[in-house]
């Protein structure tokens, strides 16, 4: 056997084709993450500081979504789409991922908000700040810093979960890997290559988040 058979070479020649899929993977990830973070943070604020209605809504939203498999959410959106309004597969995936991650992010931000001592809010109120001012000027700047490592973890899960888009036929990295694997009859090698690509993406992301974490650290503070 030579160093590499011709099918193996075909796998490597397909790398540019796989990398085009990375673009779509990143598009899905970034949009879903942005939507999911905004929703997760707003719902966490509702959960911690909202009145009964907002609090209860956030609580049940989080519980229900977290008990559904991502695939079920994606299929529900996609087929609900085909029956009521036509949601393109790309947007079904983006919205599905955003809903899924938002539920987990509620818990991340809730924990971060609640980890700030009650005295911080009291001191802000005692100065005459409104509740909104206290939250935005005092509580959030501290709790967002604390949330960074947990949020980064969730974000890398979203990046990897974007591979689920393949079930709806979107030509992102995972779907393209499947094509290459079928064409070259080299599934093992193909998935090692796409696995490496996911690894590089995730590593680069978590590294930059750690850098940010250090950069915004409050001097002297342990946590």
């Amino acid at each position: 056997m030579g160093l590499m058979n011709s099918n193996a070479i075909k796998v490597f020649k397909s790398i540019p084709y796989l990398l085009e899929g990375v673009g779509i993977t990143l598009e899905i990830t970034v949009i879903a993450l942005a939507l999911g973070t905004v929703a997760g943070l707003l719902l966490a604020l509702c959960r911690v500081y909202g009145g009964t209605i907002l609090h209860t809504f956030a609580l049940f939203y989080s519980r229900i979504i977290r008990s559904l498999p991502l695939l079920v959410i994606l299929f529900m959106l996609y087929f609900l789409g085909s029956e009521v309004v036509n949601i393109p597969a790309f947007w079904a995936v983006v919205i599905g991922l955003a809903i899924h991650t938002s539920a987990y992010q509620i818990e991340i931000f809730r924990g971060a908000l609640q980890s700030i001592s009650k005295g911080q809010m009291e001191a802000a109120l005692a100065l005459g700040m409104s509740k909104y001012q206290s939250i935005f000027a005092v509580i959030l700047p501290q709790s967002l810093r604390r949330a960074i490592p947990y949020w980064a973890n969730e974000a890398s899960i979203v990046l990897k979960d974007s591979s689920m888009a393949y079930v709806l036929g979107i030509a992102e990295l995972m779907r393209r890997s499947e094509y290459v694997s079928a064409r070259t009859a080299q599934p093992m090698l193909t998935y090692i290559v796409s696995g490496l690509i996911y690894l590089i993406l995730t590593y680069a992301f978590t590294r930059s988040m750690s850098k940010i974490e250090v950069k915004v650290k409050i001097p002297g503070l342990e946590r």
Binding site: S117, G119, Q120, E122, A123, A124, L125, A126, L127, G128, M129, S130, V138, P141, Q142, R145, I218, L221
Partner: peptide, 20 residues
Amino acid sequence: LSKVRQRIGMVFQDFNLFNH
């Protein structure tokens, strides 16, 4: 309440300085 609290300064046992 905000107007009232502005007129009353408060110092706490645990300081409660804004850490950030």
